[in-house]
Write a protein that binds this DNA or RNA. Structure first.
Lengths: 228, 228
DNA sequence: GAAAAATTTAACTATTTAGTTACAATTTTG
DNA sequence: CAAAATTGTAACTAAATAGTTAAATTTTTC
């Protein structure tokens, strides 16, 4: 028969499309990006359950139909948002680490670049903490894999450092949580700390905290300090 | 006029009552305690927004009217639950620290007892992480004060250690977040890690992690190691 | 400029949810 | 025992919420 030319307006394959539209940036999917950015903020602030689609409409200025057109449903939106968010932090960290020479510099790069990335994208540590706190029940696999890449990178650094005879033997997971844990706590607790006027002046800046953390982690890992 | 003897069934002054009923334990307020325990679990799993009163009824086996009788509303329940929860962890830690002699032992006690308490009450790190992640917007003042007590205790330990000439100068907040952050991440991530069969066997136990963390923190803080 | 894709408008449904109410039954306590 | 406090039943309201739909309008792309 005369094959109808009707093109059904089906959501453009969800994850793949939105990911692409995000990467090819700028022109394509301006609306999708605005939705994603606002949703990420909201998920970071109040979590999945605490975020409503109506508020998302209001805050993003995008209508409900467009949201469902692009992301299918709330869960789909959450999945895309988290995956993008984690990628956007982990990828640059791994790149920076890869450029550093020697395990000690790589460790530096790991701490410093994660701190910088997480600090300039504070929604990421917020969402990460919330997700871990709920046992990762709702964490998209792709998002979790990003975190595993990060852990793996640290494992390699520590392993190499041991083989080079400059790092003590250490448990990678404990070290990883020491770095991520303290930085996530520091970054996400900022609004809380600023709300307590007493201590405001006493707290270290991000850069100073990076310094402190780096030197503490080094002190814990390095076999012999020849400097200072 | 003849003053009516009607006693209006008003919620028995919320926080004060429920706190008391909890402390005097056992006989009084068995129902209130069951509500509180179940609610705390749920808040830890899915947060305030993700928890529903209907599910609380189902899981606790207590009817809705009783819940509202005891706690007024959802927000009141959240407030009581969090305050009790934080107290129940912080109090024993401070007690244990107070019994230790010398700043080094106190530091040990601080790490070890917090780890033990948080591990046997894993709802606490979960709720803490979620609350910090949302900027502490919904954190009851009384609950926040408990965390400040903990930080203050560590400050005192570090200060004393410096004065005794055994600890390097260090930033208390960074150190605090290093300890709490890594332990909270470790404890709350357990279900997630167990869900990944690959690494299951590789992860350290809690006790081993306490060891690792303690020795790393010591390495970072102690001025001279004469042992090992 | 025409086709296709993207976005908007606005009203709608079904469900979930917090919170209420009135009253009965039970337990605790003086 | 009697009063008071506690717990339970069950049905209810009002609001919020996720998700739908149909059609028009705008933007992009070829």
């Amino acid at each position: 028969m005369t094959q109808a030319k009707i093109k059904i307006k089906e959501p453009p394959s969800l994850v793949e499309h939105s990911t692409l539209s995000r990467l090819r940036a700028k022109k394509r999917g301006k609306t999708a990006n605005k939705i994603l950015a606002t949703a990420t903020e909201m998920f970071a602030e109040t979590g999945f359950g605490g975020s409503t689609m109506d508020e998302l409409c209001a805050r993003s200025g995008v209508n409900k139909a467009s949201i469902y057109y692009h992301f299918g449903d709330k869960a789909g939106l959450y999945e895309v948002a988290l995956t993008e968010l984690f990628k956007s932090v982990v990828e640059p960290v791994l790149q920076t680490v890869a450029q550093a020479q020697g395990s000690r510099n790589q460790l530096h790069a790991f701490i410093e670049s994660f701190a910088q990335q997480a600090s300039s994208t504070p929604t990421m540590p917020a969402v990460l903490m919330r997700e871990i706190a709920s046992g990762g029940m709702n964490m998209p696999i792709a998002a979790r894999e990003q975190m595993q890449r990060l852990l793996f990178a640290l494992k390699v650094i520590l392993q190499q450092g041991e083989e080079d005879g400059i790092f003590k033997e250490s448990d990678p997971l404990t070290t990883h949580f020491m770095i991520l844990g303290s930085l996530c706590f520091f970054i996400t607790s900022e609004p809380m700390r600023l709300a307590i006027p007493a201590e405001k002046k006493l707290d270290l800046s991000l850069d100073e905290t990076i310094q402190q953390l780096t030197s503490m982690v080094e002190a814990a890992l390095l076999i012999a300090n020849k400097e200072d």
